[in-house]
Design a protein around this nucleic acid. Sequence first.
DNA 1: ACCTGTCAACTAACATGTTAGCTGAAAGTG
DNA 2: CACTTTCAGCTAACATGTTAGTTGACAGGT
Lengths: 235, 235
Amino acid sequence: MANIANIYSGTLADIEKLDGPLSQRVYTALRDAILDMKIAPGEVLRKATICEQFGVSRSPVAEALTRLSGEGLVDVIPQSATRVTRFSLEEIREECFLRDAVEVAAVKRVATTRTDDQLLQLSRNIRLQSLLVEDKDFHGFFEADEAFHAMLLEFTGFRSVAAIAGQLSLQLRRARVLILPEEGRPAETVIEHTAVLDAIRAGDEDGAARAMRHHLGQLIVRIEPLEQQFPDFFR
Amino acid sequence: MANIANIYSGTLADIEKLDGPLSQRVYTALRDAILDMKIAPGEVLRKATICEQFGVSRSPVAEALTRLSGEGLVDVIPQSATRVTRFSLEEIREECFLRDAVEVAAVKRVATTRTDDQLLQLSRNIRLQSLLVEDKDFHGFFEADEAFHAMLLEFTGFRSVAAIAGQLSLQLRRARVLILPEEGRPAETVIEHTAVLDAIRAGDEDGAARAMRHHLGQLIVRIEPLEQQFPDFFR
DNA sequence: ACCTGTCAACTAACATGTTAGCTGAAAGTG
DNA sequence: CACTTTCAGCTAACATGTTAGTTGACAGGT
């Protein structure tokens, strides 16, 4: 007999397996679940329920929710409720703009500074992407895709720019989970990634920028139809 | 008899004057004090002391510190202490890179989309900057400078891109307070802002980008010497 | 039937008691 | 004297009791 209050039960990671402070573990578990769309946008998160599920008191849960709220992953309605943030196309377009600005700048820089080792790592990653597409391992492909972009950001020489830039486009990352299974898109993505890498290898700053801009531009046109497809997830 | 624990007493805004939840008021007061360098980098923030100063309990203070920690404005050392984050040149260079990426992208866009009203607002702001420099009102100038950049970001048409981009360069904003009184710099800044505006008015996308890149590039060369000048503020 | 005020139930927000982990000084040891 | 070890004191972290604001259902008036 499924309890309505526990509809996302079992989708949360076991915090026993993580280490560090309780609040950190609760935060990580909730964040992962939200980013992977295991908890639907709009769904209510009750402090008391979360406490029971993790077997912890309200303090660490409150802290975790505060952090998630700061990242825009949950909406706290004062004295009333806490919900997983719904998508807003306006906000997603903004994130696309920012992501484009940062990743294009990164790729221009990398095109002029890249080392042989970096080129090797990137091309290895792309070969991995191809294999995962062949195997139809979409989850694995998603991770390799993220790793490709993260590598480009890291290769700017700014150690944690990838982490900071990642925080800019959390809604985007979440929305991408919805378009993952779209037929043929992963294969196209690999081609676009390859174009970026080829330009970087050639040291062609502007070509790399154009290739990256084109690649990122594909995302928003695939996200826009989601508002019709999943109206409940949007506000 | 000044209490050592209260050395930043009186620099905190009176939370009675703010509204909203207590945690929000505490957060705002602390954040403003940190950004304005009224609490020095490296200074220890004791929960108990803050509670006394604001006359609130530990919960809202804890929540405020959690949020500040998420923004990188304070460092929490588990079970030990909470300090105002020290500067790191590495991190500041990163923020410069990100800020450059975002603001150059913004200015390129605005150069092709600007309306007459927007041009008017920008030129009004620059005239205000000139007046404030003449009056040697550095604090006022600082605010007008920030407003200029915020306006450019807003004119991209992405409503809250200014707010999000602002979060990217909090350390930069804090460090800028230290270079404020540098002789002659404000006057130069006005000239650089004018160059940006002129290019935007001319619809010269690349010229605006170059002008903005040059302007932002001035910042890091002025920040770097601060590490020698204020060694205690750096880690 | 349709507003409209009241109120009970539920939630986050706040206060406070308790625990666990770090830290640095002092005592012990070679 | 140097190099551990112990331990008291302090801090953030966690648990839990209490308050206040929101919401929606329901009663009563129009």
